[in-house]
Design a protein around this nucleic acid. Structure first.
Length: 267
DNA sequence: GTTGAGCGTT
């Protein structure tokens, strides 16, 4: 609680000692929130545990000041945490303090590295583009064949957190935002749910929503991208009249009727 | 207007 007097020592935007990103940009893209400001408010916390949650970061980081957001990126396809996260403060001074204090600290048995976020937030579109050209930029794990073109419909988050695909720390919703943050501040951001899915009265607890009773026949363990494309775009709806008389039409495409008998008939 | 597939993951 004791807010230590933080000396107004603005972090040298040239680098807080060590900058491992020789990006020609050399500019803090605003860290998300600054946007024009010189002082970044977003911190990149590296070397997090795989099972580290936003809540785990909120507490230690929240003591330096009100947090605006915490985000733990996860692999889009595998859904695994990537081991780092973003902590965005409301006040850049708090961010600087937090970075100074937390950098090198051990969280959950891991020494995390806290630096200022640099690049701007990445949009899904950019992400896709990057994957495409980046090629094996991630790992050389080509086995994970990237979904070249999945028209739309994002890959199912493979049974993980059906509620929210990403890890986001819902702050303790107080009855009234007396202090700390004013409600008028953009309606307190989007503390509800980014999915756009109206969580009607669904408390943001960790309780898991009941899965749809009608489960898809797809294997759960199967990766999302293993979805076999439709064999043939045969429309489910067909002429209501009479189907093609299959008296003796050998070349008909519908040979699915006679299921393979013992593996004898196989062209 | 935003952005939840956010860079610095082995």
């Amino acid at each position: 609680m004791g807010r230590r007097s933080y000396s107004p020592s603005p972090p040298p935007r040239g680098g807080y000692g060590r900058r491992r990103s020789p990006s020609p940009r050399g500019r803090y893209g605003g860290g998300g929130g600054s946007r024009g400001r010189d002082l970044p408010t977003s911190l990149l916390v590296r070397n997090l545990r795989r099972d580290c949650r936003a809540e785990d970061l909120r507490r230690p980081f929240g003591q330096f000041g009100p947090l605006k957001d915490i985000y733990l990126p996860r692999d889009y396809y595998s859904g695994e945490p990537r081991g780092f996260g973003f902590v965005q403060f409301v006040d850049p001074a708090d961010a600087a303090e937090a970075k100074y204090q937390m950098d090198g600290q051990v969280l959950q048995g891991r020494q995390m590295t806290v630096v200022f976020a640099e690049e701007n937030r990445k949009k899904p579109d950019d992400m896709r583009f990057r994957e495409r050209r980046g090629g094996g930029s991630r790992f050389s794990d080509r086995r994970r064949s990237p979904p070249r073109r999945y028209s739309r419909s994002p890959p199912p988050r493979y049974a993980r957190s059906p509620s929210r695909g990403r890890e986001y720390s819902p702050p303790p919703k107080r009855r009234h935002y007396s202090r700390s943050i004013s409600p008028r501040d953009k309606r307190y951001s989007r503390e509800r749910s980014y999915s756009g899915s109206p969580v009607r009265g669904r408390s943001p607890s960790y309780d898991e929503p009941p899965r749809s009773p009608s489960r898809s026949p797809v294997k759960e363990g199967s990766p999302p991208y293993s979805e076999p494309r439709s064999r043939s775009p045969r429309s489910p709806v067909r002429s209501p009249g009479r189907s093609r008389s299959r008296s003796g039409e050998p070349g008909d495409y519908y040979r699915d009727v006679p299921q393979r008998s013992d593996g004898s008939a196989s062209p």
